[in-house]
Design a protein around this nucleic acid. Structure first.
Lengths: 203, 203, 203, 203
DNA sequence: CATGAATGAGGCTTCATTCAT
DNA sequence: GATGAATGAAGCCTCATTCAT
């Protein structure tokens, strides 16, 4: 049931706006639902219900389930990346990692799903994770370069430096239900992980 | 005892052996198939076909799909654990990590599936991963304790020491197709990871 | 209320009607099919085919096979009961039994299936039979009470009076194919049963 | 595992005897199992297990499941019939009905299964029930004839006289779980049914 | 465009029956 | 003859996707 009695009465631009809005809403609610029940176990019907639209509407906006997930994931990737850039602007390694954790913590449920289930999803999911990591990597590399030069942190190959950090964080996220049942892992262990990691890479 | 008493007396070497063999074969082929197509995306019919038996035979040996997967995973866990204990017998931290990589490398495809998909599977999958890690943790802790005492490696909380290593290894495994397409990651990056990690934890 | 609020407002006469119709059609055709092939031996696919819909459609309307059967049986129970009340309104014992036979005759095939297979079905089937019998019992008790008081029929415990009648009728229904092959038993033997039974209970 | 090391050592007659014995045993245990779990819901594997033989042995003795059931039912029919003849030898109507109840009570569980599920089974099941009833009918008819002539019981068409009785008894058997949960119905209600019925048919 | 009923391919599981030993 | 592992034809149910309204 639309807001208008006859479809043709709606001005074109209005209609398009409406459509874009529905699409956006769908992405938002899908995001929530996927974070809640997982990327694999959420059915298109669940998403439709969560968004308060008909099941068919999902396919009016996205040709396939995969396309919707890809969109949600991409959207998410863009937001996280933006946020990380915001937070991590040119500080020390310590500050950048802190910003990274803060940024992830804001999206922990969905990000965790991506870490856990990403490898079962369309390539876009993987690419998004790569993109997010690039954002961090970018800032971290610069800071690390500086601090290596300044003798603050050890000289280590950048990719290993970075992957050690990511590996550590992902490991805690993926096993959050074991490490910190019922409570965000990053909240509970973030500080500890950060300090530990800094210890490791500090001269 | 009547003639209808049941047939537990003599091992009935012929038939029972045959059945055990089929069961074993099924587990082996399931193992391969699961390693190849993933734990989520492998259907019971695929396993039957891979094993060269009828679909029904799968259920003559395992009551449900889950039971079969659990069996395969447990079997796998036991083998890996045993192997890790074999390899990691009381050496230095370096030797133990080397042994760990060697042990995992022998089972890389399946282990990778477990790391990637474990969180979507019956609890047994998680438990198996925990068990495997316990095996490594056990040896690593002892060696690390010694070497910390000897001033060879840094004093660090054991769980962080361990999880940093596991996180790093799992991260490379989970993304093996990106880091090392078409070739086992551990073969390509194992040495590098090991040396890097040792650098980090060395005084 | 947003535009995504759900659509309970207007009856959406078109679609909802259509769905209800399909559901009803499904129940009707299931009813026929079950009467024809029996409650045990009718598969969901048969019902779908009989209704001219896809197999999946059955489950779009009823969560399980059992739920569908239960629905059909309940619907049937309600109809028969209503009909029996209609027919049996406060007459003599003779009239009530006549009404009972007439009511059953209208639904003989399905009712016979229920009598034959009821004990193998979900509880709802039993309950429905009980409900139907309660309807008759209610009217019969009242009339019998009156006629016993008036010395028209013998003084007999009500439950035995009733169960004798039901037992007789069910026996003929359950063996209808022997007593009256290719033709409704009640049509052929109803009158005779009624007269016989009245003879028995008459002073 | 047979009692003999080599099959050919067994004398022909011995073997045949053995086979007949197994067959008999199978029928006996099938009888118990069918009485316990019902004719529809008992699987051939259950029967084999109950008999302590292999699943295949069932099919070595009976070509199909139906053939086995038929055999069991026929065997049962013969026994009940014989027993009924034994018990019901030429007494009064009262004595004959009493004998009938007594005879059925000895086999109540299986007989009840037959009454409940008979119409879903191969024709032989129906025929057996008919045969059993013929046995009773035979004695009852003679006695009833006498007592009608003697003015003890009413003059009623024999088939109605008989079917009223059978209908009543079957009704209580089929609904035994409702009328007398956890206890044989005939034990609890037999006497009452008998007296009630006699009242009905008595002048 | 939005709707949601209908679709149907495909997955898991059961069980009477077969057959090599 | 007895065995029991293996078979495979069904049966129930799920869910992404389509399409008439």
């Amino acid at each position: 049931m639309t807001q208008y009695a006859g479809v043709d009465e709606m001005p074109e631009s209005q209609r398009q706006k409406q459509k874009k809005q529905t699409r956006k809403h769908l992405i938002t609610m899908a995001f929530n639902q996927l974070a809640k029940d997982g990327l694999i176990n959420t059915r298109t019907a669940d998403i439709a219900k969560a968004a308060g639209v008909s099941h068919g509407t999902v396919f009016a906006h996205f040709p396939t389930r995969d396309a919707l997930l890809t969109e949600v994931i991409n959207e998410f990737g863009a937001r996280v990346t933006r946020r990380l850039h915001e937070l991590a602007g040119g500080g020390s390694v310590h500050e950048i990692l802190e910003a990274h954790l803060k940024g992830l913590a804001e999206f922990e449920p969905f990000y965790t799903r991506l870490v856990r289930e990403g490898s079962l999803l369309p390539e876009s999911a993987r690419n998004t994770l790569i993109m997010i990591q690039s954002a961090v990597s970018f800032h971290l590399s610069q800071a690390a370069e500086r601090e290596m030069a300044a003798g603050i942190i050890r000289r280590l190959p950048m990719h290993l430096l970075f992957n050690t950090w990511i590996g550590l964080v992902h490991y805690y996220l993926a096993n959050g239900d074991l490490f910190s049942p019922g409570k965000p892992v990053l909240e509970r262990y973030g500080k500890e992980l950060l300090e530990h990691y800094l210890t490791l890479i500090t001269e």
